[in-house]
């Protein structure tokens, strides 16, 4: 799966968006996240795994607990993809205008 697709899949879920939002305030452990989310701790762990795979979240080992934090790599990939989408659309538009100008050039001129 392309990275941006993983990001889309990750952000397609409401709980995962909520987790990303919570991590925006600062790094958290699974337990801290589970305490404020309406889902179980194992479910939070599952969501965090999806978020890690997409590059939206990273974690570090702090003794006995894993601390999760936002990672901007995932959003950068998604953003890059959106950029490339508009590049493609505008390229095709420019090509269409070029064809148009050639058509006009081929017409007999009456000046």
């Amino acid at each position: 799966m392309e990275t941006y697709e993983a990001v889309l899949e990750a952000l397609g879920d409401r709980t995962r968006r909520h987790i990303v939002d919570l991590l925006r305030a600062g790094p958290s452990s699974v337990g801290e996240l589970a305490a404020v989310l309406p889902v179980s701790r194992p479910a939070v762990s599952q969501h965090l795994m999806v978020l890690r795979r997409s590059g939206l979240v990273s974690y570090s080992d702090h003794g006995t607990r894993n601390v999760y934090r936002l990672d901007t790599a995932g959003l950068r990939d998604l953003r890059a993809w959106l950029d490339s989408f508009w590049d493609l659309a505008l390229d095709r538009y420019a090509q269409r205008v070029r064809e148009d100008s050639l058509d006009i050039g081929a017409q007999p001129r009456h000046e």
Binding site: V7, L8, R17, R24, L78, L82, F85
Partner: peptide, 13 residues
Amino acid sequence: WEPVLGRFAAVAA
């Protein structure tokens, strides 16, 4: 922030 992420993902999807 959550709606922002959702919107961004939805548009891109």
